[in-house]
């Protein structure tokens, strides 16, 4: 049963992504409101994939991905960034920090599900 960590400060987006993740077979969605909350959840549960926003209060998505990818325990967890930034530069920035993939808002639910399934199968 894959555990999906959704890191997003907007409750609307969190609910939307969680709703979409119901279509990933047997998936359990764990929600976090920011990077710090996400690190807390990572220490409590075995996470299989992280879907994170970039712009968040307390700790943003780029800092979170950098901490995750530099931690030997978590570095193999795929991280998909979801953000309003659509420019290629921002995409490169997220990938350079260690993100495995990137999706721009407004998100296409089918595209997100496909991407999550792809990374869960690769694991």
């Amino acid at each position: 049963m894959p555990n999906i960590l959704v890191v997003e400060d907007s409750p609307t987006m969190r609910q939307l992504i969680s709703f979409a993740m119901r279509r990933v077979p047997d998936a359990k969605v764990i929600e976090a409101a920011d990077g710090v909350d996400a690190l807390k959840k990572l220490s409590q549960e075995k996470i299989d994939i992280i879907l994170s926003d970039i712009n968040m209060p307390v700790m943003d998505g780029l800092k979170l991905v950098s901490l995750v990818k530099n931690n030997p325990t978590y570095k193999n967890i795929p991280v998909i960034m979801i953000t309003t930034e659509g420019a290629e530069e921002d995409k490169k920035r997220a990938i350079a920090m260690g993100a495995d993939d990137y999706l721009s808002k407004p998100i296409q639910t089918q595209e997100l599900i496909k991407l999550v399934k792809k990374y869960l199968e690769l694991k």
């Binding site: 609307t12 609910q15 939307l16 709703f19 979409a20 639910t109 089918q110």
Partner: peptide, 20 residues
């Protein structure tokens, strides 16, 4: 149907949040 389903989910979330 998948698209319709996604759209309905989006509309549900939007509506749910607006009245939350």
């Amino acid at each position: 149907i998948e698209e319709e389903n996604n759209n309905l989910a989006n509309l549900y979330v939007a509506s749910y949040q607006l009245h939350s």
